[in-house]
Amino acid sequence: MTDPEVNVYQALQRVETFVIPHTAAFPAGSEGAKDVARVTPLIQEIGPPKQISGRPASPATGAKASLFDEVRDDLEAIAATARTIAKKDPGFDTPYRLGDDTQRQILADAERILGELATPATVARFIAYAMEPNFVTDLQADLALIDGKGEEQEEDQIDSVGDTARVAVLIKEARALITSIGTSVKNKFRRDPEILAEWATASHIQRTPRKKPGDATPEPLPAV
C-alpha cells in the first residue's frame, strides 16, 4: 500500500470512530445510514497496511534464499573434503574449488561439481570421509527446489499485482465514501460547530509531501 493510500485508510479508520456514537442520527434507509454501514466492512476489505511504499517480500523469496544457503553449505563441505583427498592425490581438489557466494555463482558451482560427481567411484571417495551416502541426491533435490521457488516467486508477484489493484479500487471507494458521509454530517450537524470540528479532524486525509530532487528518503509511516 502506498503512502497516499495509507493516508486514506487511516482517515477511514478515524471516520469509523466518529460515526459509531452518531449512527442513530442517520435515519434508516437514508444515504447517510447506508454510507455509515459501509465504513467498517470497507476497512476490513482493505485490510491493514502490510508494508508502506512498497510490496512485501515474496514468501518464496525467503525460502529460496534459505535453499541457496543450504546448497552453499553442501558445496563447502564437498570442497573441504576434496582438499583433504588432495593431500594424498594432488590436484584432486581443483575441480571442486568454489567461487563467490552469489546465487548465480552458487548455481554454476553446483552444476559443475555435480558433473564431477557423476561416477560412483568418485562419490565413494567422499563417502569414505563420512559424507552422507546420499549427499549427491540431496544436492540435486535442493537445486530442483530452487527452480520450483523461482516459479513460486513469479506467482507471488502476479498475486501481489492483483492485490495492489484490488486495494487501489477499495481506496478509491473509501475516498468517495468519506466525501459522501461528510455531506450528511454537515447537513445534519450544521448548527453544531463542535461536532463539525470533530468531523473535520476525523475525515482529514493527510497529503503526502512530494519529494524534491536531492531529498532524503523519508522514514516509513507506521502501520496501523
Rank of each mutant, 00 (worst) to 15 (best):
T102E: 12
G54L: 10
P41D: 09
G150W: 04
P95R: 11
K87Q: 14
R72M: 05
R207P: 10
I158A: 15
I113R: 06
T179L: 11
L196N: 09
I178D: 07
Q13E: 13
I127E: 05
G29R: 01
A28Q: 06
G47F: 02
I106W: 02
A25G: 08
E151G: 05
S30C: 12
K149N: 13
S53C: 01
Y9H: 10
E152H: 09
Q140K: 15
G47E: 00
E70K: 03
L117A: 04
L114D: 03
A24I: 12
P213A: 11
A77P: 07
K64R: 15
I171L: 07
I46E: 08
T122Q: 11
L67M: 01
D215L: 05
I195D: 00
D156M: 04
P21M: 06
L145C: 04
D109K: 07
N134T: 15
A223V: 14
W199P: 02
K172P: 06
Q105L: 07
L177P: 05
P90E: 13
L42D: 03
V6Q: 03
E151N: 12
P95Q: 13
A108D: 10
R112F: 08
K212Q: 13
V6E: 05
M1I: 10
A165D: 04
P49I: 14
V161K: 09
D147C: 08
Q105H: 09
D93C: 07
V6F: 01
V36I: 14
D3K: 10
D73C: 08
S184F: 00
G214C: 01
A168L: 14
S66L: 11
V6M: 05
I113N: 03
W199E: 02
S184D: 01
F68A: 05
V19H: 00
S53W: 01
K186H: 09
Y96I: 02
E116R: 10
S180A: 15
V123G: 04
V123W: 03
D101P: 04
A108F: 11
V123F: 01
T137R: 13
A124L: 14
P21S: 08
N7E: 09
N187Y: 08
Q140H: 09
D93P: 05
S184V: 00
G182D: 05
N134C: 06
R83H: 04
G91R: 01
V136P: 07
I181T: 08
A110R: 06
A63P: 08
E111D: 15
Y129I: 02
L75Q: 01
I85Y: 01
Q44I: 04
A141P: 08
E151D: 11
E116D: 12
T208L: 05
L170R: 11
K211M: 13
P21W: 10
S160H: 13
V136D: 09
P48H: 15
T81S: 13
I106S: 03
Q10R: 15
E76G: 00
P193Y: 14
E31I: 08
V15K: 00
P90H: 11
G29A: 10
P222Y: 06
S203R: 00
L221K: 06
R72H: 07
G150V: 04
L143M: 14
I20G: 07
